[in-house]
Simulated scan of single mutants.
Amino acid sequence: MISHVIWDLGETLTTPPNSRMDVKPLTEYPEIELREHVLEVLETINKMGLKHAILSNTATSDSDVVRELLKRLHILDKFEYIFATKSELDPSVPEKPDSVVYHYVLDELDIRPDEAVMIGNTWDTDIIGANRIGMHAIWLQNPEISVRKDYDEKVVTPPWILPVWDLEAVPKALELLVGCSQGEERG
């Protein structure tokens, strides 16, 4: 049964820094804001009984910096767990889509892949990474934020990948995935 939603951060929950990459800690970018409808969507998902976590590839920001950013944005209390890879400038550090980072977060949450849904805007990292380990995913396909470079990567179903246009559609997509996972448990 699905119990957790694991969110990407940049371009999913927040706007990016003007430089597009956090070449300095995310807390040093006053222009970073919540994307439209984030708070309402987080609250709706809470009412569904699901918990929130973050798994984000970052360049210079570690998990503590991301916590400080979320505190500034008044949503830190919404998340059970936060993990920032601090990997984008160091090829030796694992990052999404590497299964090790997904499994690290799942182990910290003490859940299996089929008990979580990954939500992100980047096909090549957020969505394929989740799919490879058996986690459902919701792909934000809004052309302003969606990223896809690899059109040849094969997906396995289930787990399911649901495309949505923007954050407002996420709760309905989660309802579908929760329904599917309950049906799989009965079947």
Rank of each mutant, 00 (worst) to 15 (best):
P94N: 10
R35Y: 05
E28H: 14
Y81L: 13
L70E: 00
D22E: 11
K24R: 13
S56A: 05
P25I: 09
F79V: 01
S56N: 02
L89F: 15
R72H: 13
D90W: 08
L34P: 01
I45T: 06
K24M: 15
D110H: 13
I32K: 03
N46K: 11
L76H: 13
V93A: 07
E33D: 14
H52C: 00
R67P: 14
R112H: 14
A116C: 11
L73N: 03
D107R: 13
E43Y: 03
L106W: 04
E33T: 15
I45G: 00
T85Q: 03
E68P: 08
V117K: 07
A84G: 07
E31A: 10
D77G: 10
T85I: 02
E28N: 15
D77V: 08
T44L: 05
P113Y: 04
F79W: 01
F79M: 02
N46Q: 15
K86A: 11
L69A: 15
Y29F: 12
V93N: 07
E43R: 02
H103A: 01
E88Y: 09
N57G: 08
T60L: 11
E88P: 07
L50R: 10
Y104I: 08
K51E: 10
V65N: 11
P97K: 03
E115F: 09
D110V: 08
L70Q: 00
D107C: 07
P91W: 09
I54L: 06
L55N: 02
V66L: 06
Y81W: 10
P97H: 04
D64R: 14
Y102G: 11
T58H: 03
E68R: 10
K86F: 11
L34Y: 01
H37L: 05
K96F: 13
S87N: 09
P25S: 14
P30F: 03
L42N: 02
I111C: 12
A53E: 14
A116W: 09
L39F: 02
K86E: 15
E28W: 09
Y29P: 06
L76M: 11
S63I: 01
L106M: 07
A59C: 11
H37V: 02
E115L: 10
E36F: 10
P97N: 06
R112D: 11
E28S: 12
D22G: 13
I75P: 05
H37G: 05
D64L: 14
K47W: 07
D77M: 07
L106N: 06
L76F: 13
L69G: 13
K71A: 05
S63G: 03
E28G: 14
V93F: 08
Y102E: 08
I82N: 09
V105H: 06
L34T: 00
K24S: 12
L55Q: 00
T58Q: 07
